[in-house]
Design a protein around this nucleic acid. Structure first.
Length: 530
RNA sequence: GGGUCUAUGGCGCAGCCAGGUAGCGCACCGGACUUUUAAUCCGGUUGUCGAGGGUCCGAAUCCCUCUAGACCCGCCA
């Protein structure tokens, strides 16, 4: 076996960090503080992929620190982006009039933040807080207002012809051979993209523009016809994406940024701009695949029903999110809430491996798995293992027990010998989220039951038995006897009962099960069918 | 037009990015238990790792070619 030396904790994150360091050393740049960046979209509801960008960047920061360097994560909100379309589910807020305006200049329809953009960003930041990611927050609005990019903008605009040609060469987009890669915000109507910049007056640092109609997506946005000038050092406006990253990297001294494959072309151009125009060697990158929803479509930020961190945390814990994001970075993946149970269990397995309860013979693999566990715990792994309960079992149990759920599921777990004592906070939390999961996703396939007279009679008899004060000796047997005594196939009768009680045609052994749920409760449910 | 990813038992997938005994779930078969179904427990079967070439002592894993599918970009961000 070739003894490759293991870097850091042995994961892809460590490998990435070490590549980054090697490159920086070659470039001879200062390594006092290494900035890693993550961009947050602010125009739609942030899905778990956006979270992933930041979480992974944070992982790289941790890896760098683990290798002995200082590092910080800058979370940058693109809140000068214009609103392009109304996210699904937000039609009622009358946002149409704001289409084309920077999201930081649109009022928050929910009234909880200073703008629409800040509202969206804060959802993501809240997600990061919830999974324990630390970051320094910056926003485009302040960045431009404070003129932090003015030197970069100036250089870019002075070289706009060269850049326009290069963009055309690299990605085939010809637009910037004609227009400047800078969008002023129209002073009259506050819109972005409608103001077309045609001329840069270098010594005054002023861009001349005209606000005209433009097409975004399939929608026409009306310009107001205003002709004006924008001062790049303080007026609002923004660089086109094809050059903006480069400006930001240079201004903020960013050494690493991951990106999704959908913006590959932009990154290619930006790398060139950073290197050749701004003389700032571009940051080290890693490309990741987008998460797809189960139908194979890209999860769109502006669509409703998005997998947000908040929604995920209703059904799974933060470890399951971090595991999802840290276990690997390559490969297209279809993602849905139904991945949660698997991840919950996988974390337990990983923890068992870490604490030596699961043996792994391959030393390299063991190191890697332990490393992954440490990253999922943000490099502060617990001293001892948490209590493990199979998550699918919990979902099954919570599916069955809807009333007094916590107490009853806990009792079952003790019966099964999964846990020793009740009342544990850790387990209660698990029961709660597993319960959320089963409530949300257990599609109670409302089977239309066609019950003939004999079946109904049998059910009535069963109800009578169940309502008796004293415990029937053996419910299982009672059911069997009732079926036989009434010309109902026992097999069919059991099936009917499962369908009524559980909504499925199969289930746990029904006698003890009825006792668990409560005889009276079952009797009541059955009454509705006779 | 450009680019990326994916292909592994019947089905769904992991393993690949740092090469070293091909795994998991479901399904299936057998046994145990239960006076029925189901559940549970124990055991078992299932593979030219898409095709072809290359590197290597050794390739599912790395490299090249090909095939099929999915997605992204070519508005904007």
């Amino acid at each position: 076996m070739s003894e490759e030396k293991i870097i850091g904790k042995g994961t892809w994150i460590d490998k990435l960090a070490s590549e980054l360091l090697e490159r920086e050393k070659k470039l001879g740049r200062s390594l006092d503080v290494i900035n890693v960046e993550s961009g947050l979209g602010a125009s739609g509801i942030p899905h778990i992929g956006s979270l992933g960008d930041a979480v992974r960047a944070y992982g790289v920061k941790l890896a760098l620190e683990n290798l002995g360097y200082k590092s910080q994560l800058i979370a940058y909100s693109d809140d000068l982006d214009g609103l392009r379309k109304i996210p699904e589910g937000m039609e009622k807020f009358g946002l149409e009039e704001h289409i084309g305006k920077p999201v930081s200049l649109i009022p928050d329809p929910y009234g909880t933040h200073d703008s629409y953009g800040m509202h969206m960003s804060s959802i993501l930041l809240d997600g990061l807080d919830k999974v324990g990611i630390k970051y320094e927050f910056r926003r485009a609005k302040d960045t431009y207002n404070q003129g932090l990019l003015k030197n970069q903008i100036h250089t870019i605009l002075e070289n706009s012809t060269k850049i326009g040609d290069k963009i055309s060469e690299l990605v085939g987009q010809e637009k910037y051979q004609k227009y400047l890669p800078y969008f002023p915000v129209c002073k009259k109507c506050n819109r972005l993209y409608t103001a077309e910049a045609t001329e840069y007056i270098s010594d005054k640092k002023i861009v001349k523009y005209k606000c005209h109609d433009t097409e975004i997506g399939s929608k026409m946005i009306k310009g107001c016809g205003y002709e004006g000038e924008a001062d790049i050092t303080k007026d609002l406006g923004k660089l086109a994406w094809k050059v903006e990253f480069a400006a930001r990297w240079s201004a903020f001294d960013i050494r690493f940024e991951a990106y999704g494959k959908d913006i590959m072309d932009s990154v290619k151009v930006n790398d060139w701009v950073a290197d050749e125009i701004l003389q700032f060697p571009h940051p080290h990158h890693v490309k990741y695949e987008m998460f797809l929803d189960k139908g194979g479509k890209k999860i769109s930020k502006s669509l409703g029903n998005v997998i947000t961190a908040q929604k995920w945390l209703e059904f799974g814990n933060s470890k399951s999110i971090l595991l999802l994001l840290y276990k690997r970075i390559t490969g297209a993946r279809e993602l849905g809430f139904d991945d949660i149970p698997g991840l919950m269990n996988e974390y337990n397995e990983l923890e068992d491996t870490y604490f030596g309860r699961i043996k792994v013979d391959n030393q390299a693999k063991l190191t890697k798995l332990k490393g992954l566990y440490e990253y999922v715990n943000l490099l502060s792994p617990p001293k001892q293992s948490s209590i493990h309960v199979n998550y699918r079992l919990l979902i099954e149990l919570t599916k069955i027990f809807k009333e007094n759920r916590n107490e009853r599921v806990m009792k079952k777990l003790i019966d099964y010998g999964v846990i020793k004592e009740g009342g544990l906070k850790e387990v209660e939390k698990l029961i709660e989220i597993a319960g959320n999961y089963s409530d949300e996703f257990d599609e109670q396939e409302k089977i239309e039951l066609e019950l003939d007279a004999t079946a109904k009679k049998a059910i009535s008899l069963l109800i009578t038995e169940l309502e008796k004060e004293e415990d029937p000796e053996d419910i299982q047997n009672t059911i069997y006897q009732i079926a036989k005594g009434n010309d109902v196939q026992p097999k069919d009768f059991f099936k009917i009962l499962y369908q009524i009680i559980l909504g499925t045609s199969r289930g746990p052994k029904i006698g003890p099960f009825i006792t668990d749920i409560g005889r009276k409760q079952v009797a009541k449910t059955l009454t509705e069918y006779v």
